[in-house]
Amino acid sequence: MTSTIPSTQAPDKDEVARVFKEMLRIRRFEELASRAYTQGKISGFLHLYIGQEAIAVATADLMKDGDRVVTTYRDHGFAISLGCDPGACMAELFGKKDGLVGGVGGSMHFFDKDKGLWGGYAIVGGHLPVAAGHAFASKYLKDDAVTLCFLGEGAMHIGATHEGMHLAGLWKLPVVFVIENNQYAMGTPLKRQTLVDDLTVRAPAYRMTSDRWEVNDIFETRRRLAEAVERARKDHQPALIELLTYRFRGHSMSDPAKYRTKDEVEGWRKKDPLYRAEQRLRDDHGFDDEAIESIDDAVVDEMQAAVDFADASPQPDPEHRFRHHLVEDV
């Protein structure tokens, strides 16, 4: 199976620098969101993507026009990687008028249809049937698009997940289900949620192909995801992929993550794809502190500008609360 991304060629310096910067954009966005939360500028639930950035960046790289991402409430990373305006994203977190969806959704409900972000979904597992429905429409309309549906490992134990996967397999829909196994469903480790170690063991029952790996190297992740996506596009072969990853923060801002050890966190830090990309730039491509800092400075400036934009944006107009419940509510 040929992927859209050349897999044999080692990525050159510019490419490593680009993905490093893209991952860093998400991390810095999240860190500034975290700070804004502690400053009281963001309320509600805020689930950060720190540690998982490589997945969103790899995904954005391999998508073609018309492809869709459907994901969970941990959705900021995909918004940034898919090219949504960071200012609009931050303004959404701030509950402002210029937010991505006008301030009605907040952190857990990012949508940017034109950019391919078909939703952050906040009811666990409820989005899998919807993603299967997008793929059903793609097959029906012959639009050649693939739907990439992301879920946490905690979503593997609820009914809607399996109904969505079952129908996708039964009807051979062009959808790729990607489990972002970040080891904990809120505070519950995987081993207390299920007796299986490998979550892709469910794939054969739904006649899905499967793949499973630890997300250390963004380029490997991109290549292997692209293989599944192209099979879905060409053969309408759905897939179930498990990505072993880690979130360095708690489940949400209110979670101090006391259920895991320092050693465990440190172990994963060494495998952090962002850290590894930085090491690669230093070791293989001669980047020094100054070169790394110059990338970082540009990213921090961009994300600080997003915060400033969100700060300056007004609250939504009071009348806005009546809009869009039905199509008549314009």
Partner: peptide, 11 residues
Amino acid sequence: GVGVGAAMAGL
């Protein structure tokens, strides 16, 4: 849910 997803995509 498939119906919802299909409707969002134009059916």
